[in-house]
Simulated assay, not measured.
Amino acid sequence: MKTIRTIISACALLAAASMPLTASAHGDVTPQAIDTKTLPALGKEWRDENPYRGQKEAIKIGTSGYAENCARCHGLQAQSGGIAPDLRLLDRDCVDLKGDAKKQACYKETDKYFLTSIRHGKVRNGAVYMPPFEGILNQEAMWSIKAYLETVRAIK
Rank of each mutant, 00 (worst) to 15 (best):
R124H: 13
I118T: 07
T38C: 08
G121V: 06
G27R: 04
T38K: 10
Q79R: 12
D48Y: 14
T63Q: 14
R119K: 15
R5S: 15
G121E: 04
G43A: 10
A67S: 06
S64T: 10
L39V: 09
M19N: 09
K60W: 04
Q104I: 07
R5M: 14
D48W: 10
H74F: 00
D28M: 01
D93Q: 15
E134P: 07
K60L: 15
N138K: 09
K102E: 14
I59R: 01
T116D: 07
E45Q: 13
K112Q: 09
G54V: 02
G82W: 00
C70M: 04
K37S: 13
C94L: 02
R53M: 10
I118Y: 01
I136M: 12
A15P: 03
P20R: 05
R53L: 10
R47C: 05
H74S: 02
R72P: 15
S18K: 10
T116V: 12
K56Q: 12
Q77K: 14
A127C: 03
R88F: 02
V29S: 06
D35P: 08
D100I: 10
G121R: 02
A67L: 11
I59W: 05
L21S: 11
G43F: 07
A58S: 01
C73Y: 04
A41L: 10
E49I: 09
Q32P: 11
A17C: 10
K108Y: 03
C94I: 06
T110H: 14
K103Q: 15
K56R: 04
C70S: 03
V29G: 12
E134G: 13
D48M: 14
G54Q: 00
A16W: 04
K56A: 15
L97C: 02
T38E: 13
A105K: 11
S24H: 13
I61E: 03
S9P: 02
N138R: 08
L97G: 06
P51Y: 01
